[in-house]
């Protein structure tokens, strides 16, 4: 059994326009505060280590997701990471053609669990899995303690 009557004249069917307005401030949290403050002030990237599970988390967490211990052991992340996987974005976030293609990659560091999804500042033909990259930070006075303090990852110079 369905509805007894159905409108077939589409001009009589209505739509209602609206939005879901909201504004957010996300705190970085306990681990995030130390991570972003260190990045902003000293340009260092830190991770947290779980001695029981022998995992080093990046971005750092205040707890180990495996054993749920509180983590107090902080380590500096090696300067050079590697492209683990990448994609080339040709559309912007609104779905329009981007002025130029942008390479996005998942970047991992030796001995570190996790990593960053970030932009790789290199022509797409040069980016491949395993490419060694290093973070390019904004100049210190312009850093705000957000993930965008890292402008991009660049191919590492040897």
């Amino acid at each position: 059994m369905t509805f007894i009557e159905k409108t077939t004249d589409h001009r009589k069917l209505r739509r209602w326009e609206g939005n879901i307005e909201a504004d957010y401030i996300y705190t970085s949290g306990l681990a995030g505060e130390r991570f972003f403050t260190e990045l902003r002030k000293n340009g260092r990237i830190l991770a947290t280590h779980c001695p029981r599970c022998d995992l080093t988390y990046l971005p750092p967490r205040m707890y180990c997701e495996r054993c749920l211990a509180e983590l107090r052991d902080w380590k500096e992340v090696p300067a050079t990471g590697r492209v683990e996987a990448f994609t080339v974005a040709r559309l912007d976030e609104e779905g329009h053609e981007a002025p130029e293609p942008q390479v996005w990659a998942f970047i991992k560091f030796p001995g570190i669990h996790g990593g960053f999804v970030h932009i790789v500042a290199a022509p797409e033909e040069k980016v491949k899995r395993g490419l060694e990259v290093r973070p390019r930070l904004k100049p210190q006075p312009l850093r705000t303690g957000e993930i965008t303090d890292i402008e991009a990852f660049e191919p590492a110079e040897h």
């Binding site: 996300y26 705190t27 970085s28 949290g29 306990l30 681990a31 995030g32 505060e33 967490r61 205040m62 707890y63 495996r66 054993c67 749920l68 509180e70």
Partner: peptide
């Protein structure tokens, strides 16, 4: 207003509950 992230708030309450029950996550 608390400083912790949602994940961290969950951890803090969960850790307490485990400790109060005398068990571990496993």
């Amino acid at each position: 207003r608390l400083m912790e992230t949602p994940k961290e708030l969950c951890f803090e309450a969960t850790r307490m509950a485990l400790d109060s029950a005398g068990i571990e996550l496993k």
